[in-house]
Write a protein that binds this DNA or RNA. Structure first.
Lengths: 212, 212
DNA sequence: AATTATATATGATAAAAGTCATATTTTTTA
DNA sequence: TAAAAAATATGACTTTTATCATATATAATT
């Protein structure tokens, strides 16, 4: 996430594009010739596995940029970026990015900070994936989703995900997520209303995620 | 990993320090006031878990830099960096890094590339951790270690790790690693000589790691 | 070299998680 | 709105992995 001014600078004069729910902004393995600023909406970032399952690596929302990593490495897209609701993004061509990096050292530093921060989060994810069991990871993910996307007027986490998408975030089976969510509900840690999830006991979920 | 010239530039006039096997170059949570170039040797990068177990996030060797991510984020060290054999590294103070970034746009770009690359690798790790079973991850890790550290004169992977360290790389129990290594040995995929591991059938390991 | 400590190895068992089957509910489409 | 499709839910069972116990081998220390 960059500062408002930096994003403004890029998105001024740029055409904003609509990405409908389920559509891809970028596709893993495809060449990348610019990056995107998310103006509005929500996206999931996924990686395809040899067994054909998508692994959700992270989520982004308004104010986030995506695609810059591939540009900088001069590699094809490492992830597929898919809208999880109708969203708007604006495209910034590669040249604009490179030009700005070269002419504006403080922007380069800002970008370094941005990617460094993402790298730290990715490292934390690796440790969590490796050492936490599915229940711990689910608890953690629910807290993460509420923190990232906030809550709606009825206090439900403000993002609609299928159980399968949650499973693909945790790296587990859909049935396991369904069972665990039922368990959390029975223990009065969460409330469920279709796909909507409301966290009732944040502290308890935090404890579970840390193994207590 | 940066280019030879860039590293030279930093390490000239810098004192090289000896880090003995088991000693830390940086410690998770501690403040960071510079970064290190590895001149010689091997290090593991670990993250402490709530259950007290170390998770090995990655490995580095000569030519790699470490600590720059925390510097750029202005955060405490996110990882502990421990020598896995007697090693040499040189310290570059924060000011030198910041100064170079500001005065040398192409260096900033190089650094962006470096961290972007690491972020991509971390994303791959997340997917692997989430979707592969222990056997697949072990096969992959053996191939990774040979690729990173190369082999000695007898073709054994040129790094000495305990079974526990391998387990902490995969995020599994030490006994599981021991059992699986025995299995690979019985299947003539690897040869074991104490802690030394020799890969006999690279293709078979690759197939296992991809789930065939 | 003998002793101690640490690492490796292996079996037995338990716990966690995956898979398959099937029922029910919700959502989408015609 | 009805029919079809997709998602959720739950039980039964299997596989994977962790844990505990213990034996053996290797490395470190005195």
């Amino acid at each position: 996430m960059l500062t408002y001014e930096e994003l403004e600078c890029f998105s001024r004069h740029k055409s904003t594009i609509l990405v409908k729910k389920g559509e891809n902004l970028m596709t893993e393995g495809n060449p990348v010739n610019g990056f995107y600023c998310v103006k509005n909406g929500k996206f999931k970032l996924t990686k395809l596995n040899s067994n054909g399952k998508d692994q959700i690596i992270s989520y982004i929302k308004e104010g986030y940029i995506v695609g810059h990593r591939s540009l900088l490495c001069e590699e094809p897209a490492g992830l597929t970026v898919t809208a999880i609701e109708d969203s708007f993004a604006c495209f910034v061509p590669k040249e604009d990015l490179m030009c700005t990096i070269k002419n504006n050292p403080s922007f380069a530093l800002e970008l370094l900070k941005n990617i460094s921060h993402q790298l730290n989060e990715a490292n934390c994810s690796i440790a969590n994936m490796a050492q936490k069991n599915v229940k711990q990871r689910l608890a953690e993910t629910l807290l993460f989703l509420e923190d990232l996307f906030g809550v709606d007027k009825n206090d439900y986490i403000d993002v609609i995900l299928t159980r399968e998408e949650i499973a693909n975030t945790l790296g587990t089976a859909t049935e396991s997520v369904i069972r665990l969510l039922s368990g959390f509900k029975n223990d009065n840690l969460i409330k469920l209303k279709g796909k909507k999830i409301l966290i009732l006991d944040k502290q308890a979920l935090k404890n579970i995620s840390e193994g207590y």
